[in-house]
Design a protein around this nucleic acid. Sequence first.
DNA 1: TAGTGGTCTAGACCACTCT
DNA 2: GAGTGGTCTAGACCACTAC
Lengths: 233, 233
Amino acid sequence: MTERAKIGFQDVRDVVLERIQNRVWSQGDLLPTEQELAEEFGCARATVNRALRELADRGIIDRKRKSGTRVAVSPVKQAKLEIVLTRQLVEDRNANYRYALVERKEETAPGWLASQLDLPMGAKVLHLRAMHYADNQPFQYEDRWINIAAVPKVVDADFTTVGPNEWLLGEVPFSNAELTFAAVPADDELSDYLACAKATPLFQMERTTWFRSQPVTFVRMSFHPGYQMRSQY
Amino acid sequence: MTERAKIGFQDVRDVVLERIQNRVWSQGDLLPTEQELAEEFGCARATVNRALRELADRGIIDRKRKSGTRVAVSPVKQAKLEIVLTRQLVEDRNANYRYALVERKEETAPGWLASQLDLPMGAKVLHLRAMHYADNQPFQYEDRWINIAAVPKVVDADFTTVGPNEWLLGEVPFSNAELTFAAVPADDELSDYLACAKATPLFQMERTTWFRSQPVTFVRMSFHPGYQMRSQY
DNA sequence: TAGTGGTCTAGACCACTCT
DNA sequence: GAGTGGTCTAGACCACTAC
């Protein structure tokens, strides 16, 4: 029997990728059409289509109607960054997680926040400050503002036992966000809460969250000295 | 005419997502089967399948054979991080890009590097140090080691005009990598090259790259003070 | 206008896994 | 064993775009 097991889209995808890596098709080269590849692999065009679609999603190839499929000239590397709860970050390190609310205050959005979240003048926000500990060592300082108009129920949440992130995940689970990452020097307050010298470099992540184009929350998370964020592609 | 335009997988995907956001189906709830949804939307099961597959890829729903499809309980947020060339980072800011090689030296891999890259004892590496400028302001300091065994041609590249990142992208375009991000204090050398005070917090990205399980390069990129990395989901 | 990818269909069989 | 998603097929029509 010269019969092979049936060709699946993963087989096609892997063979095409291998040929690209082996320079059978170099950067900028035109690949055969879906029809031709389908004939070569002895499968349906839909199978080839799915294989190539996955490679296109990964940025390996560029596809255009009429022009055909080309090997990407400068492949865009996309790293996937998993954004997880602080609790999970801590527990993944086999450390004991502890959360503590530092301050809870309803206030009028200051100008910079109204601008950041695109809030109307005088919008009410809930300002929360909290600490996250790993084995009772400072892990992260959280400074957060929540748009009360977007999540009215927030005024009834007390946040003494459940952190705002986990609470919001239950209320507004499927939101969009913009993230920024930076290195900042510890100010008086951060050095105090994170138990480090003033001006110590800290890794800081800011996140602005929307739900259906409505601003929900802005949070600034400052990690303990030495924290590393990891990712891969 | 009560006829609607034909239902596409994007329509199905968007309607299902909307229902999840509206809590028509709450976290942990079982969705109708593909067959039932196909009947509701008046389309083929394959169309529903593709719609749900996309939502599953995004982490919005969990799918299991026999059990069915459920709304994800704790949706994993995956931010996409575009890793681009330093040149592009600079030019995206409408700044003039300039590259300068600082040092180029063939050497035996030091212990920490051999460990990091999983190199054999005594492996030869090319050590490069370089600067990237935006409008002649220091933008990024690059400290890089390349595994000569993985890319023998590297010994013939001079790197005085083309940066190692761009050169490697041409030689080993489709590689895998692990990234770490951290905030570090500027040491004597960094403060010198980046024109900042010693101990200034700097955003630092380290990347280890493999091609077909073979280690290719390790690079440490230190950005100018105040640099922010952005992402979204 | 013609070529190429994008998508849909209706049906089929398979693979996993819950009961 | 049976229900559900995973995938493939063969064909069809559509949408974009280079020519």
